[in-house]
Computed example of a mutant assay.
Amino acid sequence: MADIPAHSGLQEPGPLYVASLAKGMILLESFKEGSPFLGITELARITGFEKNLVQRLSNTLHKMGYLEKDEIRRKYYLSPRILKHSFNYLRSRKTFALAMPALIELREELRMAVNMCVLNGPDIIYVIRLWMKYYHEASLFGESLPAYVSAGGRMLLSLLPEQEARGLLAATNLIRLTPHTRTDPDELMEEVRKARAQGYCWQLSEFIENEISISVPVTDADNKSAAIIVTRLLKNAGPESCKNFIDDTLPALLATAASISRLAGT
């Protein structure tokens, strides 16, 4: 039987670790935006599992309703049942439901895109996305982004112990997405410390050229954290434009975060 691939991101197996369950989850995670339809051979290549194991796992997930099958192409694809778990997660955190009216109000006040994200290992996952009209494509919740390149990610990393934050950066492939992307771990940790000290984080042109974003944290009664991110495209990304952006957005952003945290903490 094939071993769990090293790239799976799972912790080392322990006495309570169920390898068969882990392998089923790894197979489900193989279905991504660039590969929505996958056959047995493709799944075996992606997961590193033997074909007979892939066949059994795929058939089981198909019978349970998590995968559907294109009989003509002999390929599997995710079923809508997956969305039930996304919905259950969002409903399990009352912060998200409480945040929506406040975030809509913040978007209308600032006339900028407003998002909320949570940390998931070395990545952030968007749980709320409220775009403005200058974005031509709408994005759905569930989209992920490496934490190191996002103001929201660095803000959430700043809430972790120093060694844990550094460990997540060490587990990340730090690639340069624009000429301005920071990829040095020590430099990134300095940005994380700065966010921790000042209570907010901002970045410019590190993910998209001339895009500036600023983020502040939100916490709930269970001390679980999320981050609000406000984003805008700048025509002139000079120091004065950045200062004006921070001065114009930070007070409203902090007030919104405090209001949501207060409601979620009751």
Rank of each mutant, 00 (worst) to 15 (best):
K32E: 09
T47I: 04
T47M: 06
N59E: 15
P13R: 12
R56N: 12
K51H: 11
E50K: 15
L38K: 03
A19E: 15
L53A: 15
V54Y: 01
L21F: 12
F37E: 08
I46L: 15
P5H: 02
S35C: 04
E50V: 15
A19H: 15
P13L: 09
R45V: 12
G14A: 08
L38E: 01
G9Y: 05
G39F: 07
K32R: 12
L10T: 06
E42D: 11
L43R: 04
L61M: 13
N59P: 05
K23G: 05
K51G: 09
E29Q: 11
A44Q: 01
L38M: 08
S8I: 04
S58L: 05
Y17V: 00
L43K: 06
Y17D: 09
S20K: 13
V54H: 01
E12R: 07
L53W: 08
Y17S: 13
F49Y: 08
I46Q: 11
F49T: 02
P5I: 00
S20L: 15
G24C: 09
I40D: 03
L43P: 00
L21W: 12
E33W: 01
G34C: 09
S8C: 04
K51F: 04
G34H: 06
E42C: 03
I40W: 07
L21Q: 14
E42F: 02
G34I: 03
A44N: 02
H62P: 09
I46D: 06
V18C: 12
A22D: 14
F37G: 03
L38P: 01
H62I: 11
I40M: 12
K32Q: 13
A19P: 07
V54P: 00
P5M: 02
G9W: 00
A22T: 05
G24Y: 06
K51E: 13
H62T: 14
T41V: 09
E12D: 08
